[in-house]
Design a protein around this nucleic acid. Structure first.
Length: 122
DNA sequence: AAAGTGACGCATT
DNA sequence: TAATGCGCCACTT
């Protein structure tokens, strides 16, 4: 257990802001982090991360995270697809959690982004 | 210390 | 319109 990097902190912070019943995407989180980075200049990455690669890092950081406090199940990919290997108990459990919060599904593996995508603003 | 691995997203063919 | 490739960071072993 080592202290989290600033990048991880940013990821968890933004994910933690997603309200129940809503979901966000890796790309969205990545975008917000970039924006926050520029705004606060608190991000101490060794090098500048290409925005194009950010979403992947976001996903990887969430995969690492085992902290129940972080609602990682509310993060899906751009197509609303659930994570193939959800850290806790597979995508099935992730779907179960989301449905419990009122998130609608259009498919066994896809959430209804049109209705449940968190249009984070505030 | 070095190399491999990985919850994605976009451009190009 | 669909399928395939590229990007190149942070973390683990």
């Amino acid at each position: 257990m080592t202290s989290n990097t600033d990048f991880q902190n940013q990821v968890y912070q933004f994910v933690g802001k997603v309200p129940g019943g809503k979901v966000t995407t890796y790309g969205e989180v990545a975008y917000l982090i970039q924006n926050s980075k520029i705004k606060n200049q608190n991000y101490n990455s060794k090098v500048q991360i290409n925005p194009r690669f950010l979403p992947r890092l976001v996903g990887f950081c969430l995969h690492q995270n085992k902290d129940p406090k972080v609602p990682c199940h509310r993060v899906v990919d751009r197509n609303g697809r659930l994570a193939p290997n959800f850290a806790f108990d597979g995508a099935k459990e992730q779907k179960r959690r989301l449905e419990a919060e009122g998130v609608k599904f259009v498919d066994e593996m896809h959430v209804d982004l049109a209705k449940s995508l968190w249009q984070g603003k505030s």
